[in-house]
Write a protein that binds this DNA or RNA. Structure first.
Lengths: 339, 339
DNA sequence: CACTGGCACTCGGCGGCACTGAGTGCCAGA
DNA sequence: TCTGGCACTCAGTGCCGCCGAGTGCCAGTG
């Protein structure tokens, strides 16, 4: 039913529409792409494509625009990921190599992605669940207040104040710190609750109260941070393509502030650098109709830590965007593995 | 030249225009505000106000809208800060009391401000320069890598990895940590470079190399963080008032991503809770024409730590916004003083 | 002298109307 | 199976005239 030429026509329609943002007609199509047939023939093919639901006309006397289904087919079968230009590769390296700490890596990444794709970029912090504990620090602020700092292998730092009912001296803190680290250092964060299950009971009787308070705060902080953090950048790119639809930008801006929504959008991280493309309603969030999301998991080695991606109009340059997202994800993984 | 009634008229014009976003005419004015005079009289007053540059007509056959100068006069002399409703006070308390750590305080604050004012909120992190050192932590990651963690009295945490040329053992790290803290603990951050000026020289000869590396990274991190951090929220509120001017939202979104610009916008922190209002071109940044900024410094006690504020259209509810910003600044200061 | 009512005037916004042109579907012919 | 031709549709555009909100000015009044 869809022979090769029809697919060529669909590909040409998607490419033209993406670059001009105007319905494309049969005549323009044969002029811009050397299809080797006449407009009339193309019209027949277009009728077939419309029949199949791949393209549609906004109104009777207009050209065609791709539908969601059309974009899907394009992404799945008609496009090849466009290799990045050397300049772009260089930009990625230069941008990320100077990063100082994890916060900096994330901030730079989001900026880089937004710049490369000229769209809205979303980067998730390395998931706590999938990280492991590098070190647990316990600082005595005053006699009855400790600062608990958790440092992961990805450089993430979580800190929390522990209020104690009783006073505690420096030596006790040092000892407790050592015993805690012996238990959890280099364990997966998700394993920490198990590792500490009987920790308090095994403590010397005189330090049980303190240990119990510390462990409680630690476990609590792990639960609270479950809602992993994301950073958004390039929101101003929204207006580039939304000038025509001023009512569509508001819900998108709202969505960008709902980090929970964004995390769902990026999707479950699978294997590192594996690309996911969600087109239009596929990402099932009211207010994000008409937008597409290209995301990839990143990680060090074979372990996926979290995801990053970009959000743009359905009429986006999929091959280019996919290449950029994939390259950045790969590079971030490398940076994190090094540190 | 501007008698009381003319000022009343100006006040009425500002109030009406702010709430309706439409040029206000003489007739509507006498109907909605009981000015006790006829439209014709008001027209004369309006002519005088226009003469003085306080109001203008967008086109000949339209009502008047306030100019920048008009808003300025309104803010300076014609408005009283609207007290917050009990519901709003309660919202502030509930919102901020549950905060876990500094990041959380900042995130909650920005969200709260955006919600209260229905505008774009900007909150600056407590300035490093104005904080003091609570503790300096040195963690031995491997033999040749240390993690340096700086914790300030406002709960801010900065961390950085120190790469060493030689191996170092746990005891040496402990000793160095103790000596470092003896020097800088509870000093103002801005004093740290002075405090450490001769630190390396006074170290035992065998630990000089390590001390020098650590101090170098510490000083460097203080310089780099000079560009203090800000957090933005409520960007979706932009579209509420920018529907009519779709071309004005793009530059504003861009400005929101330029944190340096935002920091300038908030202005130099003066005394805590002191309000600043910048109207239109007063904040002198291309692309922010037509917007106003209401900001306040916050701090604990009499020490200003940083600023927060909101950004909105020139036609904003100044009394309400000023009340909200001021109340939030006061409350944030209190929260930080407690922790 | 300040205020008021009346009146002529201006001009943006809106609906109606005709025209244009891009693009289509269909059909007969190669 | 493709092509050229033809009638048809309809969004977009420009033009026109009307409506009405709002103004400025002036003469009249307490």
């Amino acid at each position: 039913m869809l022979d090769d030429r029809k697919l060529d026509v669909l590909r040409a329609i998607v490419q033209d529409f993406v670059s001009t943002n105007e319905p494309v007609g049969s005549k323009a199509l044969v002029e811009r792409h050397h299809l080797g047939v006449s407009p009339a023939t193309v019209r027949n093919d277009m009728a077939a494509l419309e029949e199949g639901g791949y393209i549609a006309q906004p109104h009777t006397s207009a050209g065609r625009i791709p539908t969601e289904k059309g974009y899907r087919l394009f992404v799945d079968r008609l496009s090849t990921i466009k290799p990045l230009s050397p300049a772009e590769r260089r930009a990625i390296e230069q941008f990320l190599d100077g990063a100082l700490d994890l916060d900096d890596v994330v901030r730079r990444t989001v900026r880089l992605l937004a710049q490369l794709t000229r769209q809205v970029a979303v980067v998730q912090y390395p998931s706590l669940d999938r990280s492991s504990v590098r070190h647990l620090e316990l600082v005595r602020l005053t006699g009855s207040r400790l600062l608990l700092v958790l440092i992961t292998d990805t450089g993430r730092v979580e800190q929390r104040v522990v209020e104690l009912a009783t006073e505690v001296d420096e030596d006790a803190v040092t000892a407790l710190r050592a015993r805690l680290n012996a238990r959890v250092a280099s364990a997966l964060v998700i394993e920490v609750p198990n590792q500490l299950a009987d920790f308090v009971d095994q403590e010397p009787i005189e330090s049980r109260a303190v240990a119990s308070a510390v462990v409680a705060v630690l476990l609590e902080s792990l639960v609270e941070r479950r809602d992993d953090r994301v950073v958004v950048g390039g929101a101003s790119n929204l207006t580039r393509f939304a000038l025509d639809f001023p009512d569509t930008v508001h819900p998108v801006l709202e969505a960008l502030e709902e980090h929970v929504v964004l995390i769902k959008l990026l999707g479950e991280a699978t294997r590192p650098t594996e690309l996911t493309v969600r087109i239009g309603d596929e990402n099932a969030y009211e207010g994000l109709r008409g937008t597409s999301v290209v995301s990839a998991a990143y990680g060090s080695g074979s372990r996926a830590l979290a995801s990053l991606g970009v959000l743009g109009p359905m009429r986006m340059d999929y091959p280019g965007t996919m290449a950029a997202v994939s390259a950045v994800a790969r590079y971030v993984g490398r940076i994190l593995a090094e540190s």
